[in-house]
Design a protein around this nucleic acid. Structure first.
Length: 593
DNA sequence: ATACATACC
DNA sequence: GACTGGTATGTAT
């Protein structure tokens, strides 16, 4: 749904304390890394339940805890890139401003677009956004009443998923590393996440919400967007809508044994979501009344960061252009149209008018509108670990991931044509490599060799994360396929015993006593005493190896068994990433040329 | 078609 | 000391 404005973090200045003062577009940051000073982390954005928090001192703790780390170094690297892109953005701004022809053209086009958008504005629908409060934490507290009133966080020392409201008073937030949270709140209790619990509760909640809109749209485990137009029979009186919001909150709490949620009601899904955040927790907000004027006065003063789709980076770019609020966004519409991509500028224009994506039916190709199930487009598994440079160890990790992914695909009844390897280097740089497979698959027999090949091409390196993603489903247009495949697999169940342990470690998959069928066959064909020049398939990772190889080239397992890894020096290749703003420049070139 | 960046929960 | 995991999408080449 959302777009990307892209551009620089630059905002550097703003960091923590007092916002960008006069902020008038003179942002002359030569962003040397020392000048960047305080880095901007997502979890430093004050959010619900953090009203009285001294963000200044939270910021200091975060900075102190991060100082000197590889992660911080990476953040600085990114900040420098952002600063450069912002510089280019401002450059293009001034070029555009001096080009009177371009400015005039922009005016014509945007004015026409605004007219068109206003024609499409619909104020007759009633949307309701439901957002569970501190969801994971609420689920946990329900089962462990002794946590009540105490500061706790769902997650671990590495990363926090959800902080309860008590912990938030200390500045602890989701997406914050646990060790930093612990510094902010020394008595913080960590609770291990239990997703099956949250999923089960989410189903209960959805059951309730479906009585208000059978076609609700879910967003993660703790959010849903409802079209309650039919439920309210088209009425939009304030008291009717307040009553609906109250009923939803009441019904959800009743059905879940007390889980609370916050509700927002508005003429678009986007506005309803923003409204739901206003009186959190356990509150509700109905946008004044369903008129153009009410909508505009609701959004105009909002900070751009409140808009779903405008994240940290985009927000910083907008700030560099002197844009802080939605009103600023509207006032800058000609400029934005002139210097951003059409997708980005039209998203921002629509947003600044408070017009919903659903009103602009052209986007979605109206016909296949309300598909019952959300169509998943990819399935992925990724794991973080202590930095590893040894290629055999990396291969084993990757094989484990492939088995897990295979099992997930299998459970979903999906087979894909595309395999993507994701690598996070030990310095936090992210790399991805993709192949198109000869046929759609969900099998580890296909995934493992392909994944290992992708990895091998990148070696040597030292990584802290590996991930695999499968996408591009077979028979995308055939909805029958999935269920047919599930049936097929059910019928072949006997063949799948080997696969069943997809989660087991490689070492467990290769018991040294019992040779796999492949190894047994290999043994018959080539007795150990004879050195036969036959290629062999590695038992551990299935890769075909040269006859002369004594060990698997990919995973290092000894021919006929698995083997402990040997170490390899970690070298990280240096690559130049093209930036989005480079692209803007070339697009402009095309235009004028 | 592939690689990278941004965003959301 | 320590900074996630899963999915979608936009942009460039």
């Amino acid at each position: 749904m959302p777009e990307v404005v892209n551009g620089g973090a630059a905002g550097a200045a703003g960091a923590s304390g007092a916002g960008a003062s006069g902020a008038s577009s003179d942002v002359n940051n030569n962003a040397s890394s020392e000048q960047l000073g305080a880095l901007s982390y997502v979890f430093l954005n004050s959010k619900g339940g953090m009203d009285g928090v001294d963000m200044q001192s939270v910021q200091q703790v975060v900075a102190a805890m991060s100082a000197g780390s590889r992660h911080e170094a990476n953040e600085r690297r990114k900040a420098t890139e952002h600063a450069e892109r912002t510089r280019q953005l401002l450059q293009r701004k001034s070029t555009w401003e001096r080009d009177k022809v371009a400015v005039a053209k922009s005016r014509r086009e945007v004015d026409a677009a605004v007219t068109r958008l206003e024609e499409q504005r619909r104020l007759s629908s009633v949307f309701c956004h439901v957002d569970q409060d501190q969801y994971y934490a609420a689920c946990e507290e329900q089962e462990r009443p002794e946590l009540s009133g105490k500061a706790f966080a769902v997650g671990g020392i590495g990363m926090i998923s959800t902080a309860n409201y008590v912990a938030r008073k200390y500045g602890v937030r989701s997406a914050m590393p646990g060790f930093i949270a612990l510094k902010l709140c020394p008595h913080l209790i960590f609770v291990r996440p239990d997703f099956s619990k949250y999923t089960a509760k989410a189903q209960e909640v959805r059951g309730v919400l479906r009585t208000f809109d059978a076609n609700l749209q879910v967003r993660g485990l703790d959010e849903a967007s409802l079209d309650v137009t039919a439920y309210v029979k088209g009425r939009r009186d304030r008291d009717v809508l307040e009553a609906v919001a109250e009923k939803i909150r009441h019904d959800v709490a009743a059905a879940t044994g007390g889980l609370t949620c916050s509700v927002g009601i508005a003429p678009t899904r986007e506005l309803a979501k923003i409204a739901s955040d206003r009186n959190k927790p356990n509150g509700q907000c109905i946008v004044e009344d369903f008129t153009r004027e009410a909508v505009l006065s609701f959004i105009r003063p909002l900070e751009t960061r409140k808009i779903t789709g405008i994240g940290k980076v985009t927000d910083a770019s907008l700030k560099a252009l002197g844009i802080t609020t939605v009103e600023d966004l509207y006032n800058a519409r000609y400029l934005l149209h002139g210097i951003l991509t059409p997708t980005a500028s039209s998203f921002l224009l629509r947003t600044s008018l408070g017009i919903g994506a659903e009103d602009v039916s052209a986007d979605r190709g109206g016909a296949e509108d309300d598909q019952q199930e959300h169509n998943r487009k990819s399935c992925s598994v990724e794991r973080t670990f202590e930095p590893i440079g040894d290629r055999h160890t990396l291969s084993r990790k990757l094989i484990d991931i492939a088995f897990t992914l295979s099992r997930h695909l299998h459970d979903l009844g999906l087979r894909g044509h595309q395999l993507t390897l994701k690598i996070k280097l030990s310095n936090f740089e992210i790399r991805s490599r993709q192949v198109t497979l000869p046929h759609a698959t969900d099998s580890s027999d296909d995934l493992i060799p392909a994944a290992l090949k992708l990895l091998k091409a990148e070696l040597p390196l030292s990584a802290r994360l590996l991930g695999l993603k499968v996408s591009q489903w077979e028979n995308e247009n055939d909805t029958q396929v999935a269920s047919r495949d599930i049936l097929a697999r059910f019928l072949q169940k006997g063949d799948e015993e080997d696969e069943e342990g997809g989660l087991r470690k490689v070492e467990e998959i290769v018991p040294s006593t019992t040779p796999t069928p492949a190894a047994a066959v290999a043994a018959k064909m080539a007795p150990p005493t004879t050195v036969r020049s036959e290629p062999w398939a590695c038992i551990a990772c299935t890769l075909e190896n040269e006859a002369s190889a004594k060990r698997c080239e990919a995973c290092g397992a000894l021919k006929g068994s698995s083997l402990p890894p040997t170490s390899t020096l970690a070298l990280e290749k240096k690559r130049r990433a093209p930036t989005l703003l480079d692209g803007f420049a070339s697009r402009l070139k095309k235009r004028s040329g």
